[in-house]
């Protein structure tokens, strides 16, 4: 068959596509278990971090998770229940629009959503170095123990020091300087998550 003939072109393209896609599918299948395990570990670790439970390595994280956290059946997006030192907490996964893409967090709070236990960031595509700094420890840790019965507010512009709010009782947190849109988006996601916590506590899944 001639190299430039229609038949050859069609068959060649088909074979090459089939071959490369097959290899990719095989690679995907082969690494699937590993990738799923990674994802599960990431999820468990994030829930533990949001709840403020310490863990050292992968195996320990899994066993602590199994002992202390239960996923609430049928909840979607995911919600978790945990009892730490005799106090009950709820954790929920919440997504919302950021500046460039979806931001997903896990928020843990008391069942009445009156006080935040902690927040862990799952996914974000914000501008690296600006909005992307919502993943940094100073930003997320200022939410720990924050009073939140009236929702929370992330300060932007001149009001924010950009270094983290230290008062846990004012319901106000520092935004990332130079990223007011991301900071406001984060505020909305946290407040939606707080609503969800109240809903889950009230039995709505």
């Amino acid at each position: 068959m001639k190299k430039e003939s229609l038949g050859y072109v069609v068959i060649f393209t088909f074979v090459v596509c089939a071959l490369f896609v097959f290899v990719l599918a095989a690679a995907n299948q082969f690494t699937k278990a590993q990738a799923t395990a990674n994802r599960e570990f990431t999820e468990k670790a994030a829930v533990l971090d949001a709840l403020g439970i310490a863990w050292n390595d992968k195996a320990q994280a899994a066993s602590i998770y199994d002992a202390q956290v239960t996923r609430i059946d049928g909840s979607s997006p995911r919600a978790y229940r945990s009892t730490i030192d005799g106090t009950e907490y709820l954790a929920v996964e919440q997504s919302g629009a950021g500046l460039w893409g979806t931001i997903t967090i896990i928020l843990a709070a008391t069942p009445d959503a009156g006080r935040i236990r902690g927040i862990q960031l799952i996914a974000q595509n914000e501008t690296p170095g600006l909005g992307g700094r919502i993943g940094e420890a100073w930003f997320l840790s200022q939410f720990r123990g924050e009073k939140s019965d009236g929702g929370v507010r992330v300060a932007t512009g001149a009001e924010s020091k950009g270094t983290g709010d230290t008062n846990p009782d004012n319901g106000v947190l520092d935004g990332v300087s130079g990223a007011s849109r991301t900071s406001s988006a984060f505020e909305a996601i946290v407040n939606n998550a707080l609503k969800r916590v109240r809903a889950v506590a009230g039995g709505t899944l």
Binding site: K3, E4, Y8, V9, F12, T13, V16, C17, F20, V23, L24, A27, N28, T31, Q34, A35, N38
Partner: peptide
């Protein structure tokens, strides 16, 4: 074949890019 040269190039190159992505995600 000359006619589908570019298509094949894109296919092969994206194959390696996706492969890198899959490997990174797993390991």
């Amino acid at each position: 074949p000359r006619k589908v040269r570019m298509i094949i190039q894109v296919l092969v190159l994206s194959f390696f890019v996706i492969l890198i992505d899959i490997l990174l995600r797993a390991y």
